[in-house]
């Protein structure tokens, strides 16, 4: 079975919001999607949209075991629909049996790219799945829905699923895997000129509120302080 997994390299920003000094890494939900792809697929293709730093997301998934990768190069911000528009031609060209995406990215938290991609590629989709089983050209997926209910669905393939973090434990890339990744096929495609429908105007740190108390100390000390606070609030 051929599985295509979409991935994103995300930046972890601290209070300084300094992108130049940000730590970049594979979006953790995409690591779960990649692990699921490797467990299910005989052939796994990883695809990303992004600037030079996005290449490392692909190398990480190749090091985990993916067979080849496609880097759609694009500098600058994109909204989910614009990203999906760039991904869709690759999905249509590759014609995979299954497309897997992370449920959302740690930096943007839109949770929309996978869903938009399914619409553009004309694929049935299930969002936020936590288990996938494939048999006889169809997939059975499990989702957790509101109220703690568990939903089990059967979907004919090809289809697109966005996956939750509790679906699996992603493997670590070994040194040998990392070295092999450098020689695996990595196709680079220049993105078409595309304009995002929406763009981020500003990112700011929210103002600090009052009333929070950070508790430090040993477990016993912290527990004693919590007990004191609870007593004072309840008794008060």
């Amino acid at each position: 079975m051929k599985v295509l997994v979409t991935v994103k390299q995300v930046a972890t920003l601290d209070d300084r919001l300094d992108v130049e000094r940000a730590e970049w890494d594979l979006n953790s939900w995409d690591a779960h999607a990649a692990e699921a792809a490797l467990e299910l697929g005989d052939e796994v293709v990883a695809v990303t949209v992004g600037g030079e730093q996005a290449r490392e997301a692909l190398l990480t998934v190749l090091a985990m075991g993916a067979d080849r990768a496609v880097h759609i190069t694009h500098d600058g911000p994109l909204d989910p629909l614009a990203t999906a528009r760039l991904l869709a031609p690759v999905v249509q060209r590759e014609a995979p049996d299954l497309v897997l995406c992370g449920a959302h990215s740690a930096d943007a938290l839109n949770g929309a790219t996978g869903v938009a991609l399914a619409a553009l590629a004309g694929l049935p989709r299930m969002a936020a799945v936590k288990a996938i089983e494939v048999a006889d050209g169809a997939a059975t997926v499990v989702r957790e829905v509101e109220g703690g209910l568990v939903e089990r669905l059967r979907v004919k393939l090809p289809a697109l699923f966005t996956v939750q973090a509790n679906i699996n434990e992603p493997r670590y890339a070994t040194l040998r895997g990392i070295r092999k990744a450098a020689s695996k096929p990595l196709e680079v495609i220049a993105a078409e000129d595309i304009r995002p429908g929406a763009h981020v105007v500003a990112t700011t740190v929210p103002p600090k509120g009052e009333g929070a108390e950070m508790l430090t100390g040993s477990a016993g000390e912290v527990a004693a302080r919590i007990a004191t606070i609870i007593k004072s609030k309840v008794a008060g």
């Binding site: 990480t60 670590y172 890339a173 070994t174």
Partner: peptide, 14 residues
């Protein structure tokens, strides 16, 4: 190098 950077990141997660 790129290889070492990737390795370092994997080890840190581990």
């Amino acid at each position: 190098s790129e290889e070492l950077r990737l390795f370092q990141r994997q080890v840190r997660k581990w």
